[in-house]
């Protein structure tokens, strides 16, 4: 991302600067606006909520901010680049295997 003066700006700073103010939708629309932001709202309620948000001075910015926040949170779905951090350490895995062996023997003896 480039600023006017040509200085590079991190995407996060860009997002932070985008939209200031609290997330405060109309009280009776809170759940709908929240669900609209994450795509879990469907059917007539979805259309009604979009229509409401389009015309509402509180819900419109709230929806925009919720979507921006969620877009940012979703980036946390990336797994660590360091492959080791994606695996249980060897000692942990051995301990787990032993505990699983113990479970199996318990299972066998209870079956017996």
């Amino acid at each position: 991302m480039m600023r006017k003066n040509g200085e590079t700006q991190a995407p996060n700073q860009e997002i932070e600067a985008l939209d200031e103010g609290p997330i405060e939708p109309c009280e009776h629309m809170t759940n709908q606006i929240n669900s609209l932001a994450d795509g879990t709202l469907h059917g007539v309620i979805k259309h009604f909520t979009r229509f409401h948000a389009w015309h509402c001075g509180k819900c419109s910015p709230a929806l925009r901010r919720l979507i921006a926040l969620r877009t940012r949170v979703i980036t946390l779905r990336q797994l660590p680049r360091d492959a080791e951090r994606n695996l249980l350490p060897v000692a942990r895995y051995s301990a787990l295997k032993k505990a699983m062996d113990a479970l199996e023997s318990g299972e066998e003896s209870s079956n017996g």
């Binding site: 700073q13 932070e16 600067a17 200031e20 103010g21 609290p22 997330i23 405060e24 809170t30 759940n31 929240n34 669900s35 932001a37 901010r65 919720l66 926040l69 969620r70 940012r72 949170v73």
Partner: peptide, 20 residues
């Protein structure tokens, strides 16, 4: 779940704005 999720997002947004 819905109300907690909303409060979580609301609070997170507030914290990030303050930080910015």
């Amino acid at each position: 779940v819905r109300s907690r999720l909303f409060r979580a997002r609301q609070r997170l947004h507030g914290l990030l704005q303050e930080y910015a």
